[in-house]
Computed example of a mutant assay.
Amino acid sequence: MSELLLNDVSRWYGNVVAVNGVTMSVGPGITGLLGPNGAGKSTLLSMMAGLLAPSAGTVTLDGAAVRGDVEVYRRIGLVPVQESLYDFLTGRQFVRLNADLHRLTDAKGATAHAIGLVDLADAADRKISTYSKGMRQRIKVASALVHDPQVLLLDEPFNGMDPVQRRSMMSLLAGFADQGRTIVFSSHILEEVEQLARQVEVVVAGRHAASGDFSQIRRLMTDRPNKYVIRSSDDRALAALLLRDTSVRGVRLRMANALEVEADDYGTFARLIPRLAASNDIRIFELTPTDESLESVFSYLVGR
Rank of each mutant, 00 (worst) to 15 (best):
M221T: 03
M221F: 02
T222S: 10
T222K: 01
D223A: 14
R224N: 05
R224A: 12
N226A: 14
Y228R: 09
Y228Q: 13
R231T: 08
R231M: 10
S232P: 09
S232G: 03
S233T: 04
D234W: 08
D234Q: 05
D234G: 09
R236E: 09
R236F: 00
R236H: 06
A237T: 12
A237Y: 00
L238W: 08
A239E: 11
A239L: 06
A240G: 14
A240N: 13
L241S: 11
L241Q: 07
L242F: 11
L243D: 01
L243P: 06
R244Y: 05
R244D: 11
R244M: 03
D245I: 12
D245S: 13
D245H: 13
D245T: 10
S247E: 04
S247M: 02
V248N: 04
V248Y: 08
V248E: 02
V248M: 00
V248S: 03
R249F: 06
R249N: 04
G250P: 01
V251S: 08
V251L: 08
V251W: 00
V251E: 09
R252E: 14
L253V: 07
L253A: 12
R254Q: 12
M255L: 12
A256D: 15
A256F: 02
N257G: 09
N257H: 01
N257T: 06
A258C: 12
A258W: 01
E260G: 15
E260D: 13
A263L: 06
D264Y: 04
D265S: 05
D265G: 07
